[in-house]
Structure formats: structure tokens, C-alpha cells
Design a binder for these strands. Structure first.
Lengths: 230, 230
DNA sequence: ACCCAAGTGGAACGGGCGGCCCGTTTCCGT
DNA sequence: ACGGAAACGGGCCGCCCGTTCCACTTGGGT
């Protein structure tokens, strides 16, 4: 503050203002959390995140006071991709193809990251960055709906809330099927798209359901680990 | 043992062999567990079940050594209703109406009891009573599918696993929407039935989605309580 | 080279949960 | 009425979680 020769903050890294080693630890925490959230959902213990990152619990608490802060930081970039997907869909010259592609892309993102699947079924009023992206996506999605309806391929009774419902349903399927039947979500989405489509709309065939054996294994695993866990 | 005048066990209650007061406590435990499971899912702590029942933790452990045993006992009668629903559907002279009615009934049972919603997405190999009912239902459901396909109203690409997937999806919607938007599941089921239906099959209109406000409240609540909890 | 503040990890604490033991109460056959 | 066995419930233990405190380390300006 007494060195006007350079008005930069002591640490040149833009935005953070952390010391170099602290910044490194922050990154390790984020990487660890990204891994654990993706694999096991948002319910993982803070302790395990710290252990995975190779830092003490205190360090984790100092950087991210609450679980919500950590979630906010971890999923910032994923929300970018989320918001980007709707822009890409709007660029599609075929409104119906753009619509179905968007739905599929969003659900695929959920499938690729269990934590993100949970994030999409929640809203964090205090997490400005996340929520801004969500609203951005929502507005784009409204436009996508309008165009798809104009093309005559999307049914008139489709409402924006249907996407939220699909995301909730998809989260349920992903949580239940887990690693044992990882493609189950495709069948759900295929069914839903078929229901969204107006008569005559072009539709890819609904993907096949997983083998009963795989589903059975998933159900047995669930009964061992309990509901709400990976 | 030295009184051959009556070869009954000391306790006349058929099947249990428990002392009268023990039997009473057992019933109180089952009632408490039924209440808690229904309201909050299968994840509730054993301690809270004991508290709700007004008995000590030890008593609960003595009657039901594991959570699975308790679940097995609590949902025995619900599984009766579950198996009964398919019989009722098979009795319907209109195969397609029986099919849609069955799907709807099963999902309604999930909606009425969060614990049961979880039970249907799991399988407990050691819980004979439950699993027997499940197989019973499954066989009836196969017949229901066959008839509905013959009637030409159910699409040929429907497979039995689709019901399992629907139950998983429905569990996800119920867990996410909770008390804030308790009818959300109806819209999901409406959509799925529309996708199952062959062209020309009679379908009730898909129920309306809940108001955005209600869904929003549900999503906020989720972010506070965390995923996998009521 | 020095030195202070920023940063760290471990330890201690409070809370909840499940499992187990053990002194006491209650039922039920005689 | 009585005595023994069955059943009870509270208390204790170990475990994991998240939070806070504190003595030590380390970075980076001067």
C-alpha cells in the first residue's frame, strides 16, 4: 500500500490476491473436489476432499468456508459449458434438431458428472456466478422452445419446467443405475424426447435399455450402500 | 414345557412367539418406522426410529438387527398391494387401459411413500418375502405387456426394464420436488406413457407441470438439505 | 540476508450415530 | 403370591464429521 511505484497487488495472479503456495493449494483442492464430486456426487465429506487434495482440513475450511462455496467454485466452468450448449443449439439452422440436441447434451453432462447432475436440480441463491449462468441458459432455452414450436416439431404443450423435471428424473436414474448400467439415462431421454415431439417430427430411435442383469446389479448395490449415495 | 395339557407356545399370537409387551413394542417400532420411512426415505437413522417409537435403541436392535430386516418387515404389506395392483390390472378387460392404470398406480404408490419409492429401485436378495412379491409382480407385468402389445396400443419396443427405469426416474423426481411440488411426478408419468403408446392409442392428456415458483422452492430446499435427503 | 505476515497442518472439541453391555423392570407360568 | 426368565432402556464406547485454535513454517518484499 506504501509502494505506489507499482499499483498491483502483491500477487500478480489476477483476481485471487493469494500467496503463490496458497494459490497452489487452492488449485489442488479444486482438482480433488472436482474428482470426488464427479465420481460420488455432492455428498462427499469435506474431510475426504481435504485428504484427496493432500492438505489439512483447516486449509480447506479457510479457502472455502462452506460446502456451497466449494461447489460454486468447482462448477463455475461446467456452468460455462452449460450456458454454451444453449448458444450452440440456437446456432443450429434446424430448430427441432437444435432442441433435441440441447436436451441430449444437457443430460449427457449430468451423466458425465454426478455432482453436476445434482447441481442442476438445485439452486444456490447466494452463488451469483452459477445462478447468472443458469438464467442465461434459461432465457436461451425459452428462445429454443419458441423456435422449435414454430417449426411444428415440438408439441405446443411443452413447457420450460419440463426440462427441470427431466433433469430431476435423470439425476434419479443416474444415481440408481450408477456404474453398473451407465447408459440407462439414454433410454429415459429417448422416451422423453419422443413424448415432446409433435406427430411427424423426425426422431432418432430410442436407445435400447440396458440388460436386465446390469440393472439388477445396480439395484443390489443400491440396497447395500443406501439411497442418496453413489 | 411340563404342561402337556396345552401344547401351545406361551404366547398364543400366531407366528411371533414374543411376549405380549415385546409384541406391543414391535408394533410401535413398525408404526414409527413406517411413518419416518414414508416421510423421509430409507436413510433415517436407527436412533431416530427408536426415539419416534418411544423405545430404547437396544430394543430396536434386538427386534431388527439390521436396517434391511426393518425395511423388510415394514414394507411387507405395501408389497402385497404392489403385487395386488398387477392382478387388478390383468383383470381389466381393456389391456391398454390396464397397462396404463398399472403404471400410474405403481408410481402413485411411490409418491405416497418416499421409503417405498426407494424400495422399488432396490432389491434385497436376503429379504425373501419382499423379493417373492417382486417376482410375482414381474411375471404379471410380463403378461400385461404381452396383452397390451397384442391390442396394438403398446409400442413393440417397450421392454420390461422400462418400468424399472421409470421407477428410478420417478424416485428422483419425488426426492427433488418433495413437498414443495408434490404432483410433479404426474407430469413425468404422463410423458412416459405418451412415449410408450403406439400411434392411435387412447391417452389421457399429460397433467400440467407444477408452477415454476413451486419447483424453485423445491430446488432451494434441496440446496440447503443436500442431495439424498428428504 | 532478514523478518513479518500469510499460510499451514495437527490437535482438541462438540455432536451424532451405531453397537454392546448390564442393572432393572415386567410379564407369565406355577 | 411368587420366582425366574424374558425384555427393557440407559449408558458407554469407538467412529466420523465439521469447526476452531495454536505453534510452526515459508514466502517474498526490503
Amino acid at each position: 500500500m506504501t509502494s505506489p511505484s507499482s499499483d498491483q497487488t502483491p500477487c500478480q495472479q489476477p483476481g485471487t490476491g493469494l500467496r503463490a503456495d496458497a494459490e497452489r493449494n487452492r488449485d489442488r483442492i479444486l482438482a480433488a473436489a472436482r474428482r470426488l464430486f464427479a465420481a460420488e456426487g455432492l455428498g462427499v465429506s469435506m474431510t475426504s476432499v481435504a485428504r484427496e487434495a493432500g492438505v489439512g482440513k483447516a486449509t480447506l475450511s479457510r479457502r472455502f468456508a462452506t460446502r456451497e462455496e466449494l461447489i460454486n467454485a468447482v462448477f463455475a466452468d461446467r456452468m460455462d459449458a452449460y450456458a454454451g450448449a444453449v448458444a450452440e443449439a440456437l446456432a443450429d439452422p434446424d430448430p427441432w434438431h437444435g432442441f433435441t440436441g440441447y436436451i441430449h447434451a444437457v443430460c449427457a453432462m449430468q451423466a458425465a458428472d454426478r455432482g453436476f447432475a445434482d447441481v442442476l436440480t438445485m439452486t444456490f441463491p447466494t452463488a451469483k456466478a452459477l445462478e447468472a449462468r443458469r438464467t442465461e441458459s434459461y432465457n436461451g432455452f425459452l428462445e429454443l422452445i419458441a423456435r422449435a414450436k414454430s417449426s411444428g416439431h415440438l408439441r405446443e404443450d411443452f413447457v420450460p419446467e419440463d426440462l427441470v423435471i427431466l433433469q430431476m428424473a435423470n439425476a434419479g436414474v443416474l444415481a440408481a443405475a450408477g456404474e453398473d448400467a451407465p447408459d440407462t439415462w439414454r433410454r429415459l431421454v429417448g422416451h422423453m424426447l419422443r413424448s415432446y415431439a409433435a406427430p411427424g417430427a423426425p426422431l432418432p430411435t430410442v436407445p435400447e435399455a440396458p440388460k436386465p442383469r446390469a440393472l439388477y446389479r445396480a439395484m443390489v448395490r443400491l440396497s447395500r450402500t443406501g439411497p442418496g449415495t453413489a
